[in-house]
Design a protein around this nucleic acid. Structure first.
Lengths: 184, 184
DNA sequence: ACGTTAATTTGACTCATTCCAGAAAGCATC
DNA sequence: GATGCTTTCTGGAATGAGTCAAATTAACGT
């Protein structure tokens, strides 16, 4: 299989190196992985790679359009190998899970903006936000329907791995407050 | 005008505070600003605000849907007040400039994915990538048409002082200066 | 094999964002 | 207007993804 990658690398005039093969293998086997995971997976293949090498490789491959970089707001960069077809992503607001979505309107549908302001557009990226099946189910099951906070609040908690602080909200829910006039 | 903001804040049960008014004013006057700029602008209004307060405010306002957070890949978070209408953005790959684009297909067009994988989708976000008028012009003027790189990132490069260590003797060429110009 | 030069390693550094905890406002009530 | 319960701010430190640079290693054309 790696011979496959070799060909791809050569096709774009990049040298075939262990770090690159390791990264490509990792991406082939795991779609939508974030950088941290890419590093870990690449080290499974080739323990000696430095994180810097992985960053460089991802950068080079992205520039060469061999992999695609996606970065939903609030999350760290993720990469995938599926390129060339114009597909998009659904992202779960609760758990951060990502799934592929084929473009709704054919080949390059969204490439036409109503008013491009003079910009020369070369790509349209669509991100659908919502709840993945699991989170949606958990929500309707566990909690009363009308609650306004469990309702919609992105709290990216990365899946397994490092239970560390995933939470990105300053930890300050609006809670409730009273009102009355007199500011300033 | 601030009374306007007061009403908006009260409407969502948030206390009316100087930092919040300052941030709202800043956002009203400057669309698509990044956090760093929001902090600077807010301090024009109210010099004492801490950066943390600005982060908190932006977080709270975002959760309340009073402002919208946008974060194109590779850039820092930006915010805008225009919410509620389903509009999208064009981002310049070269300079990072952002412009609004009304949704091409009506009210909530892109909300229908071809296959939602069971996700419950509540929002579709579209980012058009390309070159802004200025950068597009500069490109066609300066360089041959078929070049396909120009993937530089909009990042404020700080004045790099710091002579670093080992600046003596050799005068060797910079280590890896030429991977196909990763401008930067 | 050999030499050129692209890639990698190493390690320090940047900077946006978050955490913490005490201090300072909001604002409903008295 | 004063009071007191809460929310919000301030200030400082910490975290971590991502970057820079110099020196070393390895690809691969010849």
């Amino acid at each position: 299989m790696t011979s496959d990658f070799e060909a791809q690398l050569r096709a774009i005039s990049l040298r075939v190196t262990r770090p690159r093969l390791a990264v490509l293998t990792a991406l082939r086997d795991h779609p939508h992985v974030d950088t941290r995971t890419v590093i870990a997976l690449a080290r499974d293949e080739f323990p000696a790679v430095s994180h810097q090498a992985v960053y460089d490789v991802l950068q080079a491959l992205t520039e060469s359009r061999l992999v695609r970089r996606i970065q939903p707001a609030g999350a760290t960069a993720r990469y995938e190998m599926r390129v060339g077809d114009n597909h998009h992503h659904v992202v779960c607001r609760s758990c951060g899970a990502i799934a592929d979505v084929d473009c709704a309107a054919g080949t390059a549908p969204c490439l036409t903006a109503s008013d491009d302001h003079g910009y020369v557009i070369d790509e349209a990226e669509v991100v659908y936000w919502g709840a993945c099946p699991d989170c949606a189910a958990a929500r309707t099951t566990d909690s009363p329907p009308a609650r306004k906070e469990a309702d919609e609040r992105p709290k990216h908690n990365s899946p397994r791995q490092r239970a560390g602080r995933g939470r990105e909200g300053g930890g300050r829910l609006p809670g409730r407050a009273r009102l009355r006039d007199r500011a300033r």
